[in-house]
Each structure stands twice: as structure tokens, then as C-alpha cells.
Design a protein around this nucleic acid. Sequence first.
RNA 1: GCGAGAGUGGCGGAAUGGUAUACGCGACAGACUUAAAAUCUGUUUCCCACAAGGAUUGAGGGUUCAAGUCCCUCCUCUCGCACCA
Length: 815
Amino acid sequence: MKRYSPKDIESKWQKYWDDNQTYKADLNSSKPKYIGMSMFNYPSGAGIHIGHAMNYTISDVMARFKRQQGFESYHPVGWDAFGLPAENYAIKAGVSPQESMAKIIPDYHKQYKAMGWSNDWSKEIATHEPKYYKWSQWIFTQMHKHGLAYQDSRMQWWCEKDNTVLANEQVIDGKCWRHDGPEDPLVEKKEIKQWFFKITDYADELLEATDALDWTPSVKLAQKNWIGRSEGAEVTYKVQDSEHSITVFTTAYDTMYGTTFLVVAPEHELVPFLTDPEHLAEVEAYQKATFLKSELERQAEKEKTGVFTGAYAINPLSGRPVPVWIADYVLVGYGTGAVMGVPGEDERDYEFAQKFGLDIIYTTKQQEFVSDTDIKANPEKYIIANSEEFDGMTFLEGRPKILAKLVSVGAGVAKVNYRLRDWSVGRQRYWGAPIPIINCEKCGQVLVPEEDLPVVLPELKDFQPNGDGRSALARATEWLKVPCPQCGGEGERETDTLDTYICSSWYMLRYLDPDNDQAPFGSEVANKWMPVDFYNGADHATAHMIYARFVTRFFHKIGLLENPEPFKKFLYNGKVTAANGEMFSKSKGNGVDPLEIIAQGYGADALRTYLMFAAPLDLWVKWDPQGVPGTFRFINRVWNITQDFLEAKTTDENDEKVLQAIHPAIKKVTEDLETQKYNTAIATLMKATNDLYEYKAKTGIKSEKDWRFAAESLVMMMGPFAPHAAEELWHDLGHTDTLQRDHWPVYEEKYLTSNTMTIAIQVNGKLRGTISVASDASKEDIIAAASSDEKVKTYLVSEPKKTIYVPGKLVSFVV
RNA sequence: GCGAGAGUGGCGGAAUGGUAUACGCGACAGACUUAAAAUCUGUUUCCCACAAGGAUUGAGGGUUCAAGUCCCUCCUCUCGCACCA
């Protein structure tokens, strides 16, 4: 009998699929479209690891399932080639990033193919190619023209190791996301001129559209929290004996009669004007200390700190003068950078007041501390006090009235704030797309005209950053000097490069039209293929996934795209860890190399099937060295029973039992694949295979027609998980076309049930036996059979008070 | 601290309020073999020597003829956010 040997068949079919362009998608096909993908790879030189094997197999299974079902299924492939991992790898390797990419990417090709992923290589993209990043730069120019790109001087996170600015989301626990080891330094802050995209303009619509998305719920929640909408008011306090006034943002303006102090951030622009000579030294010392502190230190501090400025501000409603303090618990980047201190209803303000002996006024009838979040949760339960004419009202009544009064005295205005900050899009590193801006002494900052794009990144010998805050492009003197597009005078190119998140924010659209040199993508093809039907990844729940939504919405707004959302379905899948739950890492040396497992003889099919079987996709998988041998056995069993069938002397008789085993499996597997319940789909296939073995042992393989149907169904359904073995068996079964397109079994309702069914019998809620009855037996017959069962009789000590019959399931007696 | 989710055999995990422990791993036994591997067959939640029986889905309570599933209280773990006013 022909034995299962992955080594012999996997490379054979990989070559066949390549030669026949089996996975090339026809974007103009009249078939229904399906596009599924995992987040693309950033090639770092290390090759694929087990996490990649997990991620890309998830989308590959979906793409294969749909392709076999008859969809025009597109499983694209590309490379997020710009960015620090690639640049750092090139530095280590002592070559330019361009050279190293030219070497690395072909290696990845081999590895992807060895995994049996059904990518369409004819439409491959890479973000470091000028023909791609021309359009990343074009996006920058469009954002600029629509007033969504601006430059601002800000305190920015700075990673000492990478010599670059970091976005907020790239700072994790006070450290750089790429350097978060125990020996790595904390990030610092530097004042740097930076380009920003005004994503905050889209905060509201991004938030509103989140609920309707068919995404992993935790990611939707994370996005909502990230956007962080909060409704409140801006309230202005006049500073006593001064022309200045301080505007605070508050969501609890209904407690503002309880204000006993104001706090402004140490970085606040008014601080120099508020501070009187007596307090100047202290204030400046505090500012300096804050400035030097890392974010981590600032967060780790339990005790509140702060100093008094000497200024007093007037509560616009009560007229009460309150002292103005500076303290680092107030953040300069949120709201107005100033808050009103209401220690009676705010925990942080309470701590602050306690520490510095400031007054406390309670604005609730209880006259004790009630958190403003409690008040907001139950505004009808709390009564206002110490608030002049509002005393005695519930907060539900008083809240709008207090706001109305604030507005009428000209001291307040309703205001919505977002936690989301604008997107910092410039990086002071070489390996990225140059920002298409020319600085001219006369004209200022001028966009590179669209017809001059791309601004090609010059290939430099020395591309390492030197720590002056500018990228190596500052040293590319020839490249740097360019005439101003407006006045023709001397100009100098911008030396910042674009954040790689820009390249990855629109790549799914480029997949649809990778060679277009007139536009980032054609609207017609994009309108047909967007949104992406299935997307998955184990990272980037907020940053990438929000930026992609933002840029897609921008395209929608400027009329390039009908659908404002990029991803219809997003699965945030789990990662693979070592058996002890530790993350795989190079330094620990506990990695599992997928290619090695394939080479050991288990093959890609068994590896793929194990990864999809081990757990539901949203859970983390602990690597089990026995797992792949286990799924190998399963594939082997399907293989052997198919070969058994091919060698059996069959007849033209019928075998309903076989059909009753396979048809329910077809139903279950098809449904489970639709919702990415891969583990139970595979379990169902295993069960069906076991059932076939059982029938083979009992009655042998007789019915040519029914056994063929069972074997072919099994092979087809195994296809998405184990495509090589399935393809080989498909051809063994006599087919000459590929299994991969348009071959999926369909179940028939009449085989979903058998002629007998098993009924459970309960007495007083306890299982006391089971009976087997004909499927068409009447309720009366079944109850009669149940009550005459020998075992059950011993428990039926008296006439049942109640008898419940659940059709096809059970009989329950109450005695 | 706030928010979300989860606790089921030795392990990964299954289960529209209706026979808990599917499927796989591991373990044990048998068949085949000179032998081993591979393969095939069987057993495997726990308690009791076996059977009969009983217990069992983190703990406790409730609803129901019937609860892993629904409700309440508590414990533990994981993941997000983290002084956002």
C-alpha cells in the first residue's frame, strides 16, 4: 500500500501549484470575491517563527476554504520592509538595508511556500520599493492638502538605543517597544519638531463606527478606550489681580462649587505668569524635576507632589478665590492641561488636599466623600449641597442647570475631549520613505509636487543615526539640496522619514492594484474587493488597526473608496508560547523552528493542522512537542483509509451507515470553518475518520459509490488544513484537476439522522438509563418504553407526578 | 485602581438549559514483529477490592422537572487601560 510520506509529496505539489499559478486570483472574476489575509510580515532576517506559522495558517485556511467553495479567493502577500528591525539587521550584517532586503525576501519566499500557504505571488508588494512608497508619500501630500498634516514642536518620547522618536503607543512601561528588556534604558523626552496627522479629527466617527464591526470584542473595547471620548465642559477661572485666566476641562462641572484649588501641569504655558516672586524658585525647581523625570517614575509615584504658585483664581459661580498649584499629576497633553481641584468628590484631588492641607467642600448632602464616578452612575440618588441655588436638587436635575448657568455667565462651554492624540508620523531614521517636503527660506515648507513623487531614498553607505536627532539623510548633501518648487530658490529636503505605520495603514488596498502608477489603487477594483473579508493578527490591537481605519476613512472622504472601513472581520488570535507558558525568545533559546519540524518528516500539513487544532484561535497555545505527531497520525489515518478504499473490491450496493457518518460531519465542518472554529472542525474530521474505521472493521468496504463519497468528502474537508496530502489523495482518487478550486462537499438533510435514536431517561433529575427507539416513534410509545425499562422501574416508586418529554433527547419523570 | 474575559480529567480542550468530560496528547494493556519503530484494537474523571452505588465543571447560595450553561455573593487567574480630571 502507498504510504504517507510528506517529504515525497509536499514539494511536488508546491511546485505544481507554482507552475500552474493555482492561487493567482483573478480580480475581474465573475465569481463571488473573498479576500483573507494576516497582518503582513516585517522581514528582519531571522526567518519565520512559530508565531508566523500560526498567524498565516489561520488566514490561509480561510482563503483555501472559500477557494474550494467556489469563491474567487485572494490570499495576498507582501512585506512591511521599512523600519527599525530591518535597519538594525542591516547594521549588524554590515550591508545596506536595500541589499539585505534583496537577500532576505527571497528566503522568506521559500519559507512561505514550504508552509503551503496559498499566496498569490503575482501581486506581491514590498513597502520599501519606490513604486510602493511613492503612494505612501502621496498620502502625506493629500493629508497635507486637506489640512490633516501639520508640524509642531513637542516634547517627544526618545529612545536612546534607536536614536529616534517614539509614538505614545511605542512606549511600553516606560521603555521603548523594541528595547524593553531589563537592561534597556527608560525612554526620555526631547523637544523636537514633528510632523503629525490629525487623526483626532476622526475620533468621533472612528468611535461611533466601532460597535458595528465584526471584530474580536476585546479589540473593539481597546479601540474605544484608546479613543477615550469624554463629555464635559471647559470652565474659565479668572486669576485674581491679573489679566490671565485659567481654563480647565472637567466632566464633573456639577461639583464645581466644591472647588478649593486649581492645578495646572508644570509644563503649562501660564505658569510663568502665575508665579509670584516669592514662589518663583520653588516653582522652577519643581518644573525642572518634573522635566527630568521619566514617565515611568511619574506613574510609579504614589504620593502626590506639587507646589503653590502664589496665584489665586476666582470660581466663576461662587466667587470664591482658590489657590493655584502646579503638580505633575495633571497632564499637559490632555484637556487644557489644567484641572479644578474638587477634593470632596475626586479621589486624586482628595489625596492632594490631604497632603497639602487644602480645604475640602462636599457638594453632596451626605457631607462625606462620594466619588464623582458614583454620582455619574446614579445621578438621581445624590442630592446637591453647598451649591447655592442648586442645593436640594438631585444631580440629575442640577447638572444641566449648572452648565446652563456657566454658559450664561460666560464662564463655561460644553466640550468633548478625547484621549486619542494626533499621530506623530515622522521618524529620525534612514530606513523609511522620505517625507515629501522641501524647506525653502522664502516659501517655508513646500510640498513636493505630486508629479515629482516618489522622493527616492538615496542609497547611503553610512546610514546609521549619529544621535543629533536627525536621520542620516541630513548627511546626504547631494540629495538634500533641491530647488524650491515654488520660487526656484535654494531648498532643502525634509530629512525625517515616514512612520512605518503609514506604509502599513493602506497596504491592503495596494494588494488590489499593485502596479498602478497613476493612483495608489483603482477605485473600481477597490470598491469591488473592499472591505477585506477576513483579517487576523496577534498584535497591534490599537495602533495599526486604528491607523488603517483612519486612512481608509480618509480615502473614503476624498472619494476614492465607497466603504469607509478596511476590515469586515478581524480575529485577534492568540500567540504560541513555550510549554511552560514563557514567550519564545532568542535570548532564552527556547524557540521552535517550523521549518525544522517540517524537515523532521512530519511535514507542513501536520504542523498546520496541529496549530489549528490545539485550541480555539483566540486562546494562547502552549507548544506541545507531542502535538504535531498527533495530527500527523490523523492525516495518516485519512491517507490509509483512502488507500484501503482504492484497493478494496467494491460493489454497487448501498451503505447508508457510511453516509450517516459523513453527512453530519460535512455540515459541522462547513459551519465551523465559516466562524473560524478550526479546533472543533478538525475534531469532527477525526471523529468521522474514526467512524469509517469502525465500519470498515465491522462490514468491510463494499459500496463503491458511498465509500467514494465519504473518502472524497473527507479529503476535500482536509484540504484547508492539510492541502498537500489532500491534493495527493484527490489525484489518487482519480481526479486530474486540482482540489484547490471549486471542490467542497455538500450534505443532504436526509442523512443527518439515523433510523434509531437514543433517549435519556431521568427520574427526579437524575439519569437512570437510556433507551434506543425508532426515530419515528411516538411520544406515547417512547414514554411507555422509558417507564418499562428495568432499571428505571426500580426508581419509579409511585405514579409520576409529572412527565416531561424533550423530542429526540430525553424523558424526565418526577415522582 | 478601572474595564473586559476566563476557571471543566494527568495535560490541550468539547458541550443551542436536556446523557458533562467530544477530539487529541499522555498513560496502561493486547495484536502484528525475532525485536523495535510504525500501525491496528481496547481501557483511562474521581471514590469504593469488584459490582451495585455515590461524587464531580473554582467556593457558597438561588431559579428550574433538569444548571458547566441563567441569577446573586465570594475566591483565583489572564488580558487591556492605567493620575485622561
